[in-house]
Design a protein around this nucleic acid. Structure first.
Length: 755
DNA sequence: GAGTTTGAAACT
DNA sequence: CAGTTTCAAACTC
């Protein structure tokens, strides 16, 4: 854990080493410019928040985001990391390219991320070795500075990758490192990890113990305690390898020492490691979702990491699946419970693996992964697992971040020790925050309302839901947490809450029951479509949005201008599916509403557009305040539209959008100041989302086979046909359709995998 | 913070 | 399937 003391130490160390030759050397190697005395907390800048989550979720994602930063860190001359093993070897021997160099400068931003998928395996192998050496040597190298710099200047955490390797090099010497890699390569035919080696070569200069300590602490944050930790670590490293990675030093600092020791042990047998993690899949590029999940972040059951990340994830699908396999699908709380227990403790490595990060990020990660791997074999459950309830992309006040960060750090180590799910959850959140992305409102908020407000202000009200249920026991869709597929957490003010890990069985059973009634009950309420996107340029946003509420709203009095309206809340326009009255949804009025409105307007002559515009803007703005997610104006917000797999009902934001484009940080921010032109979220994200959304719809439609008998709860017959029984019938929420969705993802410009 | 409003979810 | 009730969030004061 990184206490303030350590931070201080780091800061001091930074200045200490800035002048050192090593530091200079490193600087020369990297385009990143050093930032003096950058405090870890600085990593919480908006950009960092936006991109960090991805790191956790998946290497791909991180890479994707990193891609944005390629310009800063990439070295054009360097070969691609993805190259075949032979290439790697050559690289190692010949060039000693930095990890950063892994980026292919020429690679489009979106593409860069796709290269990473394969990297993890190799990286993982090496990393363990790196960790293996416990350097307590006081002599530190400037690396810390690098990390800080990266985080601050580029929002990248190149340093993260560098650190481990540097340590390795410094302690062992380049030759050793190479050996390690070779061995790893032998075990894997994967072309990854070379970069790390290369980097080591360059950075073989001694590294200070401080870094080591940082790393060790970082492990804490990540909580990679399982045998597979190395993998998780790998994933982290992988990301960090990319210059563009937003990985912050914060994370690094969190690695626990004992975890490192684990790595050490693991390093011994790369083969085994891969076996466990399905690394081979990575190499082959045919990773299934599960593999992907487990490999990069592989968390052993019971591992701290898993536990921590699991946090509020309700791996309904997983459990359900297990139950099915065990019980034959019976809903009763049967003996399966015992089997479920493990998951509680840390459960499946696959569960909530990616968690600690924001939902959107997770989703992004998923998407990126999917993109990376043409095969989308993910199970819905896994996908959903990725979603973390309380991770927020919002960027809260620096103070908050810092506080949260500290608290996280402080608590991380201690909490790890306990099996308490809650703790684990908290840890996950902490970790997230530590990652500088998450805003842990829990720490700072006293009352649910305040918390909620705060979240909303932060811009991520959706991400961290906290319920206040009193009668539903948090086992009904009334409960936002439950509806979002997450467990209630301490911050919730619910009473008699059963939506907790301890009642996992009950939760699952209830969920299953609800799904049996309405397979889409846990599906995202807002589904983006390929519908024409409204012209933002128009003063009025009357054009149908590219996203629609799953079932449409039924507002009578709110005119779809308040958050009572799910469409409005979701930041989407009303559609024909809505049965609202007097719709004035700022994000898009229901078709036909214009006519009605026109009639109404006759009474109210003046310039409709102007009036409406003002009205809409006001509302939108208001909504923005209340529910920032609705309008992604800032980079952070971009992330916010939680990237949720279309069917991942687990997505925290119950009414989440299926917005794959959150990664569209690219589009971002400038929008924010443009108060004049209010752009519905969908518009903003349309590029990314449209494809996925279409897929989603298709899936929904396509999956809903005539005979499925899926019952749509929607009042409107016109509503999107529910997904096939696969979705709902599968207790775990096995949305078979996801596969299709994922496949579609690759079409995303930025996400297109680079082969 | 308490009370009201609102509309989804649940129930009949 | 429609109507009613329940519920908790959203909102107001």
């Amino acid at each position: 854990m990184m206490d303030t003391p350590e931070k201080t130490q780091i800061s001091s160390s930074l200045s200490k080493f800035e002048d050192s030759p090593v530091f200079n050397y490193i600087n020369s190697l990297s385009p990143i410019k050093p930032v003096k005395s950058v405090h870890v907390t600085q990593t919480f800048n908006p950009l960092s928040f936006a991109s960090l989550p991805s790191i956790f979720t998946s290497p791909h994602v991180s890479s994707h985001k990193e891609s944005r930063f390629l310009k800063c860190s990439t070295d054009p001359s360097k070969p691609e990391l993805l190259s075949a093993d032979g290439t790697k070897a050559s690289r190692i021997e010949e060039t000693g390219v930095d990890v950063q160099e892994n980026f292919d400068p020429g690679v489009p931003l979106g593409e860069a991320s796709f290269e990473l998928p394969n990297e993890p395996s190799s990286i993982a192998i090496e990393l363990p070795q790196t960790l293996k050496y416990d350097c307590g040597s006081p002599g530190c190298d400037p690396t810390p500075c690098i990390i800080e710099m990266n985080c601050v200047s580029q929002s990248t955490c190149t340093s993260l990758a560098i650190v481990p390797f540097i340590q390795e090099a410094s302690q062992k010497g380049l030759s050793d490192v190479v050996d390690v890699q070779e061995s790893s390569e032998k075990g894997l035919s994967d072309g990854m990890g070379v970069a790390a080696t290369l980097q080591i070569e360059r950075k073989r200069e001694t590294i200070g113990s401080e870094w080591e300590s940082l790393i060790l602490e970082t492990s804490d944050l990540l909580i990679f305690s399982s045998p597979n930790d190395s993998e998780a670590f790998r994933g982290v490293i992988q990301k960090s390898l990319d210059p563009g990675a937003t990985f912050c030093s914060t994370l690094i600092s969190q690695f626990p020492q004992h975890d490192i020791s684990d790595y050490k042990d693991q390093t011994e047998g790369i083969g085994g490691l891969f076996e466990d993690n399905n690394v081979t899949n990575f190499a082959s590029g045919s990773l299934t979702m599960e593999n992907r999940m487990s490999a990069p972040y592989s968390i052993e059951p019971g591992s701290n990491l898993h536990r921590g990340f699991r946090r509020r994830c309700l791996d309904f699908e997983m459990l359900a699946a297990r139950r099915k396999s065990l019980d034959g699908g019976s809903n009763t709380n049967s003996s399966v419970d015992n089997k479920l227990e493990p998951s509680k403790a840390g459960g499946d490595s696959s569960r909530c693996i990616v968690p600690g990060i924001g939902l959107h990020l997770n989703a992004l990660a998923i998407v990126s992964r999917d993109n990376n791997n043409s095969k989308l074999e993910t199970s819905s459950s896994e996908t959903q697992k990725l979603i973390l309830p309380c991770t927020t992309t919002s960027n809260p006040p620096a103070a908050d971040h810092e506080t949260a960060h500290e608290s996280i750090l402080a608590s991380a180590s201690t909490e790890r020790e306990t099996d308490d799910v809650e703790n684990g959850i908290q840890l996950a959140e902490d970790a997230s925050q530590a990652s500088a992305y998450l805003v842990n409102e829990e720490f700072n908020q006293n009352s649910p309302k305040k918390k909620r407000r705060r979240l909303e202000q932060a811009g991520e009200s959706e991400a961290c839901k906290r319920c206040n249920c009193k009668k539903s026991k948090c086992l009904k869709l009334y409960c936002e947490c439950f509806a979002a597929g997450v467990y209630c957490i301490e911050p919730c003010s619910c009473q008699d809450c059963f939506n907790k890990p301890i009642h996992e069985d009950t939760v699952l059973a209830t969920r299953k029951q609800i799904e049996s009634r309405n397979p889409l009950a846990f599906a995202p309420k807002v589904i983006r479509t390929s519908d024409p996107i409204p012209e933002v340029g128009d003063d009025l946003i009357t054009t149908p949005a590219s996203a629609r509420h799953k079932r449409g709203c039924n507002c009578k009095k709110s005119n779809c201008l308040k958050k009572y309206c799910e469409c409005f809340q979701g930041g989407v326009g009303c559609s024909i599916n809505c049965r609202c009255e007097g719709c004035k949804n700022a994000f898009g009025r229901k078709e036909g509403s214009d006519i009605l409105e026109a009639e109404e307007e006759e009474t109210d002559p003046p310039n409709n557009n102007a009036t409406n515009k003002n009205f809409e803007e006001t509302n939108i703005l208001n909504n923005e305040e209340q529910n920032p997610a609705a309008l992604p104006t800032t980079p952070l917000q971009l992330c916010r539209p939680l990237v949720q797999l279309p069917f991942s009902s687990k997505g925290k934001p119950p009414r989440s959008f299926i917005s794959i484009g959150s990664s569209s940080a690219l589009y971002t921010g400038h929008r924010y100041g443009q108060s004049n032109i209010i752009r519905p979220p969908n518009i903003i994200e349309k590029h990314f989302q449209s494809v996925a959304e279409d897929e989603t719809l298709e899936i929904l439609r396509g999956n809903s086979s005539p005979g499925t008998g899926i019952k749509t709860s929607s009042p409107n017959s016109k509503r999107i046909s529910p997904p096939q029984s696969e979705f709902g019938s599968t207790p775990g929420g096995g949305w078979s359709g996801r596969k299709l969705i994922l496949q579609s993802i690759p079409s995303f410009p930025s996400l297109t995998p680079k082969h």
